[in-house]
Simulated assay, not measured.
Amino acid sequence: MSGLWVFVCGPSGAGKDSVMGWAATQLAARQDIVFARRMVTRPSHPGSDHDVVTADQFARLMDGDGLAWRWEAHGFHYGIASRYAALVAAGRVVVVNGSREHVNTLKSAEHLRVVQIEVAPVQLAARLAQRSRDTPQEVAKRLARNALFSNLHSDCTIVNQSALADAGRQLVAYLMASRPAEQITSQANYPG
């Protein structure tokens, strides 16, 4: 039996981390759906959803087959530990906080799904400005960069423009429906 990788991606400011966090909380008791922790060569900040590694540690992980997935974005290295590949092989759904640029390079595969979190450009610009992490020029660059991913293939698109729970419920429903058929049958009576 084989499980699935589900890459969740979207532009900075679309609320991807919040939607995934909401869904992870709702699915915390489930063992068949796992939210992977990323390893990133970037310092941690409040609300970070990654484990900090140095560039040397990351290189050793790559050399030692310690990573199932890896990519670069915004000058940092991102990776998903190989132990998650064992969970997919065991039939679990492993959810990854991914990068649109990385996902764009992946070939379509039976064990791979892509969920895209989107928001209207006006609301996205307002969210980015409200965060006060980027200068107005950097916000403009981020918004312009979105055009590069206008044709990104996704198996599910979630528009996160109203209550967080609305988008979160959509992700939960998609993940529940994405479970391999064997798991759905064997867990039909699961009170989740």
Rank of each mutant, 00 (worst) to 15 (best):
17 D>N: 09
19 V>G: 01
51 D>E: 14
20 M>I: 07
58 F>S: 03
181 A>V: 15
100 R>L: 04
58 F>P: 02
124 L>K: 05
109 A>F: 07
140 A>K: 12
175 L>G: 06
115 V>Q: 05
185 T>W: 05
97 N>W: 04
2 S>T: 13
142 R>Y: 06
28 A>K: 14
75 G>F: 12
55 A>C: 06
7 F>M: 09
14 A>G: 14
66 G>N: 06
187 Q>V: 04
116 Q>P: 00
41 T>P: 00
181 A>D: 15
31 Q>I: 00
8 V>C: 07
54 T>A: 02
167 A>M: 05
147 A>H: 13
107 K>G: 12
184 I>L: 14
168 G>K: 01
182 E>K: 07
111 H>Q: 13
159 V>T: 14
43 P>A: 12
19 V>H: 05
114 V>H: 03
132 S>L: 05
22 W>Q: 03
65 D>K: 12
156 C>L: 13
37 R>I: 06
145 R>P: 07
47 G>H: 03
162 S>A: 11
171 L>K: 01
133 R>H: 11
67 L>S: 08
175 L>F: 06
48 S>D: 02
48 S>W: 00
49 D>N: 08
135 T>A: 08
143 L>S: 10
5 W>M: 09
110 E>C: 11
17 D>A: 06
128 L>I: 09
16 K>Y: 09
127 R>S: 08
110 E>F: 11
92 R>D: 05
